[in-house]
Simulated scan of single mutants.
Amino acid sequence: MEPIVAAAVVAALVAVAVVVGFVGRALSGRKQRRRRADVTASDLGLDALAEVATIVQFSTEYCARCPGVRRALNGVVAGEPGVVLTEIDLTHRPELAARFRILTTPTVFVVDRRGVIAASFAGAVSAASVRTEIAALREPRSATPTSPASAMQGSSPRRHSDVIVH
Rank of each mutant, 00 (worst) to 15 (best):
V39E: 13
A122W: 05
A26G: 14
S42H: 07
R113I: 01
L73R: 09
I117K: 01
A118T: 07
R34N: 08
L27S: 09
A41M: 06
H166F: 09
T91V: 10
P81S: 03
A17G: 13
I164Q: 13
V125I: 13
M152N: 08
K31V: 10
V111C: 13
D47K: 09
V116E: 12
V52A: 05
P145Y: 13
I117H: 01
L85M: 03
R70P: 07
P145E: 13
R71I: 05
R141K: 04
R36P: 08
M152Y: 03
V9S: 10
E133T: 07
N74T: 03
A143M: 02
H160K: 10
R99K: 15
R141V: 13
V76T: 04
L96S: 01
G79P: 00
V116N: 09
P67H: 12
I55D: 02
I4L: 11
M152I: 12
V130G: 05
A149R: 14
A119P: 01
V16E: 06
I102P: 01
V83K: 10
P81N: 02
V76S: 02
V9D: 03
D47N: 02
A6G: 06
R65C: 05
Q153K: 11
A149W: 02
A37I: 06
A127I: 09
G24V: 09
A48F: 14
L85S: 01
G45W: 00
S126E: 05
G154I: 11
R99D: 13
V165H: 10
R131N: 08
R141T: 13
V163W: 09
S42A: 14
A72F: 07
D38H: 15
E95L: 07
V39I: 14
A50S: 05
V111I: 06
E61M: 08
A53D: 06
G24W: 07
